[in-house]
Amino acid sequence: MCYDCSAEPNKAGTSRRSFTRFLAAGAGLTVLAACTPEAPKAVAPSSAAPSVSPSPAAVTAAASPTADPPTAAPAPPEPSPTPSPSAALPRQFSLTDPASPWLIVNKHRPLVPATYVPADLMQPAVATTASGEAALLNSTTAAAAEAMFAAAARDGVSMVLASGYRSYSTQAATYNGYVASRGQADADTASARPGYSEHQTGWAFDIADGSGVCGFQPCFADQPAAVWAKANGHRFGFVVRYPWMFHPITGYYYEPWHLRYIGVEAATDMANRGIFTLEEYFGVEPAPGYL
Rank of each mutant, 00 (worst) to 15 (best):
Q123T: 15
E133Y: 09
T129E: 10
V112R: 15
V117K: 11
E133C: 10
L137E: 00
A114M: 10
A127N: 15
L137M: 08
Y116V: 08
P110C: 01
P113G: 04
D120M: 03
S94Q: 01
I104M: 07
V117Q: 10
V112F: 13
D120C: 03
L95T: 07
S100C: 00
L121I: 06
L137Y: 00
G132R: 06
P124G: 01
T115K: 14
L95F: 09
A142M: 06
W102D: 07
T140C: 08
L95A: 08
Q123A: 14
T129N: 12
T128M: 05
A119F: 14
E133F: 11
L103R: 09
V117A: 09
A135K: 08
L111M: 02
A125I: 13
P118N: 03
L103K: 05
V105F: 07
A142C: 09
L111N: 01
G132H: 03
A114G: 09
N138I: 10
D120T: 10
T129S: 14
Y116F: 14
Q92P: 12
S139Q: 11
D97Y: 05
L121V: 05
G132C: 07
T96Y: 08
T140A: 13
D120V: 03
P113W: 04
P113T: 04
D97S: 05
S94R: 03
V117F: 09
L136I: 09
P110R: 01
W102T: 04
A134E: 13
T96R: 11
L136Q: 14
R109F: 01
H108E: 11
L136D: 07
A127F: 09
A130F: 07
D97H: 06
A130I: 08
R91A: 15
Q92L: 14
T129H: 12
Y116A: 04
P118T: 01
G132Q: 07
A142H: 05
F93T: 05
S100L: 00
A142G: 06
P101S: 00
T141Y: 05
T96G: 07
M122Y: 12
L95N: 08
M122T: 15
V112D: 14
H108R: 15
T96D: 10
M122D: 09
A125F: 13
T115N: 12
K107S: 02
T128K: 04
V112P: 13
S100G: 00
W102F: 02
A127R: 15
P98C: 06
L137D: 00
K107F: 07
P101E: 00
A119D: 12
A99D: 10
V117S: 09
A130Y: 08
P110M: 01
P124D: 01
A99M: 08
Y116T: 05
S131H: 15
N138H: 12
V112A: 13
T128E: 00
L95G: 08
E133I: 11
A142P: 06
A130V: 07
N106R: 02
S131R: 15
T128L: 03
T129Q: 11
L111S: 02
N138K: 11
P110T: 00
A135T: 02
A99N: 13
D97W: 06
D97V: 03
S139E: 08
A99T: 14
P118W: 08
K107I: 03
R91V: 15
A114K: 12
D120L: 06
N138R: 14
T129K: 13
A125P: 09
